[in-house]
Amino acid sequence: PPQTPVRAAMNSIQQLKVILNSASDKPSENLKRYFSNCTVNPSEDVAQRVECLGRAFSDRFALAVGQGCTEIGSQRFTLGIRLYYRVMESMVKSEEERLSVQNFSKLLNNNAFHTSLLACALEVVTATYGWSPFKSGSTSETDLSFPWILDVFELRAFDFYKVIESFIKVEPSLKRDMIKHLERCEHRIMESIAWRSDSALFELLKQSKEQEGHVDHAEPPST
C-alpha cells in the first residue's frame, strides 16, 4: 500500500514499540556493573529520581491530555524509561571506549545528566506519538511538544542540549525524521530558549568571567 503520512506515523510508533518492548524498564546487568564500579553507587538515586520524575510526568500529562488518560501517560513514561536505560548503557559503554576508564562516578551521580537523558528519551517517545500530518493548530498532543518536557522536569535547556548529540550517536534505532526533530530542538535551544531572561546561563557566564578575573556584566537578552 502507498505510504501516507498517517501510515508513516503509525509505522514509527510500531517500530518504537517493537524496539522497546524487548528492552527492560530496570537497569540491565551491564548497567548495574557500571553503577557498582562507581566510587558512590548511584543505583538508589537513579531509582528514586525515576519514581519522582514519573509522578511529575504523569501528573502533567493528565493535566494536558485529560484526567482519563493517566494510563496512557504512564505507558509512555514506561517506554521513555526503557529508552533511557538502553541509551544510558550505550552511552557509558561508548565513554568507556573513548576514555579507557571504568569508574563513571561523577557522571552517573550527576542529577542534570540523568534528568536530561530521561527528558531526551521522553521527547523521542512523545514526538513519535505526537506527530500529526495536519497542521491544524494546537491539539492536546501538540501541547506536549518540545519544550514542554523541560518545564515538566524543571530542566535547564542547555543541560538538555548537552545530551542530544551523544544520544543520536549511540542510539541506532532513531529514524531520520526523529534525528531531524532532535536537531530542531538543538537549534531552538541555541537560538532562543537558552537565552531567555530567566536562563541560568547568564549567571554561569558571569561566574565564568569572574573566575577569569574579568568582571563584565552579561548582556541581557535582546527583545
Partner: peptide, 21 residues
Amino acid sequence: NHDYHFGLEEGEGVSELFDCD
C-alpha cells in the same frame, strides 16, 4: 544516512560536558 552535523570533537563527550558546572 542523515544530515545531522556531529559537532563534538575529540576530548568532548557527555563526561566532559557534565563536568564543567
